[in-house]
Every structure is written in C-alpha cells, then in structure tokens.
Design a protein around this nucleic acid. Structure first.
Lengths: 112, 112
DNA sequence: CAGGATCCTAGTAGATACTG
DNA sequence: CAGTATCTACTAGGATCCTG
C-alpha cells in the first residue's frame, strides 16, 4: 500500500552510489568554494580565483581545478598571449547541479 | 532585465555558508552511508549498523553517530535491558534533507 | 601569469584490545 | 550489546621556492 521509498544508497560498500560520487567530487575543502566563485562570475581567471577563494594556496587551487576539469565540471580556456591568460568557466553539467546545491544551501541555512 | 541569480555562497571565507555547513556534516567518509542505512530501515541497532556499513570500525561508527546526534540528525534511544539495546533513527530534520540528497544522487547517476 | 616541484604538517581514519 | 581507550597509519592539505 505505502508507496515504496526510493533508497538513498543501494550500493553502500562500493563507489557505485551516485551520492558518494557527487560527494567525492564536491566534498573537499575548496571545491565548492571554487565552483561558487566561478558561478558568480561566469568566467574567472586563475589569479582572480586565488584572490577570491581566501586562504587557498597555489597547490590546492591548481590541483582542485585539474580535478574539476577532469570530472567535467569546469572548462579551461587558455589564451596564448604574453603573458599567458587562462579563463575558467562552468560546464553545462556543472550548471545543472547548481540548483540542487542551492536547495542544499537553503536547507543548511534553515536547519543548522 | 535578466533575473538576478541567487549566489551559491556569499560568505566564502567563513563557515557562514549553509552549503559548507551541510558538507561539513555529511561530507565525511561514513556519515552518508550511516544515514542511508538508517533511512532504509526506519530504526536500526548499533550492531546492525556495524554489519551494514561494510568496513566501518567501532571507533568510526561510534564517533560518527555521536556527531550526527549532536547535529540533530539522528535520535538515540537506549533501552536499559540486559544486555543493553540502543536504537537509532532519523530526526525530522534529517528526513527533510533526504529528498534533496535523492536529487543529488540522481544527478550523480546521470552525470558521473 | 599560471602554474609545477618538493617537502612537511595535521587531521582523519584504521587496528587492536578492553569495559559497563 | 554497545561502546572506550590507545596507538598507529595514511593522506588531504599547507609552505616555500621555482619555471615556461
């Protein structure tokens, strides 16, 4: 009778669960902040990111951007001028996640 | 003209952002899995959790449960029988977060 | 300007044994 | 049964300096 609930995570042991995958991608110390800044600005340069994400180091920023790019969440566009210029932006995939993150954000503000 | 977007995270520096708060609570290695198991069973005993969350140790399970309880996401109900019995369940607050997590899960399955 | 390389620290998690 | 108490291991993250 009762409508069967959709289980939050069936494959608890492995990394098969979509939820775990998302948290692996977004769960680090810096990645949501980076996504936030890019989302707020459409397109952002490396130095601008380093100044905006207060406290981040080169190591962490470069590494996080690489991983986000590898995961298909940010685009890296390099202009071979002198000196070099690189612009980062969100992919369509990333943009489609933003509304859900906004819901989570509102939930957090209301409940924590 | 264009409708102004709601920013994902204004307070990037501090922990003021609701999104960061949520990730701090749910972002660990075990907590979502624990929430998953409890959510799937309504009410779960300690030993059942330890067997269900494959690979977790006593240390981590006890610690995670304590933090989840402190954050108001799980209820701890102790029966002073012999031997002791303890049942864990989700709070209303936690239940209100589940639908959002489900969305994230579906997004992860579709995009990762 | 946009990173890379290297070394180091610290918080997070695991193993094992024990207790009310 | 439902946890504590120690001790150890690992790895994410930090500091500093360097380069195409």
């Amino acid at each position: 009778m009762a409508n069967k609930k959709e289980p939050l995570c069936e494959d608890i042991a492995g990394n098969g669960c979509g939820l775990k995958k998302v948290l692996n991608i977004v769960g680090g110390k810096w990645k949501i902040m980076i996504l936030c800044v890019i989302d707020n600005n459409e397109t952002v340069r490396y130095g601008e990111l380093r100044r905006s994400v207060y406290g981040i180091t080169n190591t962490m920023l470069a590494q996080s951007l690489k991983e986000l790019e590898a995961d298909g969440l940010v685009n890296r566009l390099q202009f071979d001028e002198m000196p070099v210029r690189v612009e980062y932006s969100l992919t369509e995939k990333a943009k489609s996640m933003i509304p859900i993150l906004l819901e989570l954000k509102r939930w957090g503000e209301a409940n924590l």
